[in-house]
């Protein structure tokens, strides 16, 4: 019983594994994202500049991976903080997990919608 409760509060094995996988994706993709937006194109950020960059499909792919991995990593991280301080019951934990998935999917859709005008610009 005790062990079961502790396991639930640790967030689960798959969440732990995906947090590591998304972490590695974020390090690689964020390095590319920051290099192209803030080191190489500093001062040039504008609609056409971004469109020129995203015309190379690889950078669009990097941005979409960043969106998905970043949202998962951020919201699962937030979930882990909540599990530590506030989510004492299993019902509450499940409700918050479902709520965060809904929020995450909404942000993913809105983020891809925001990239859309540049794809095939």
């Amino acid at each position: 019983m005790k062990a079961e409760a502790v396991a639930a509060h640790r967030g689960g094995m798959w969440a732990w594994l995906f947090q590591r996988i998304t972490a590695i994706l974020l390090i690689v993709c964020l390095a590319i994202h920051l290099t192209f937006t803030h080191l190489l194109n500093i001062g040039d950020l504008g609609y056409d500049n971004v469109a020129n960059r995203l015309a190379h499909g690889g950078l669009t792919a990097v941005d979409i991976i960043l969106l998905a991995a970043g949202i998962y990593h951020a919201l699962n991280g937030l979930r882990m903080v909540l599990l530590d301080y506030w989510l004492t019951s299993r019902v509450r934990a499940l409700a918050v997990t479902i709520f965060l998935w809904a929020v995450g999917i909404a942000f993913l859709v809105y983020g891809i919608w925001g990239l859309w005008p540049w794809i095939g610009y």
Partner: peptide, 23 residues
Amino acid sequence: VFYLGAHIIVISTSQFGVGGGTF
């Protein structure tokens, strides 16, 4: 977490402008 949310909202919302003017 806060920055990522703000980043997605600011960039995507700026796409409501015509021809990238708002962006």
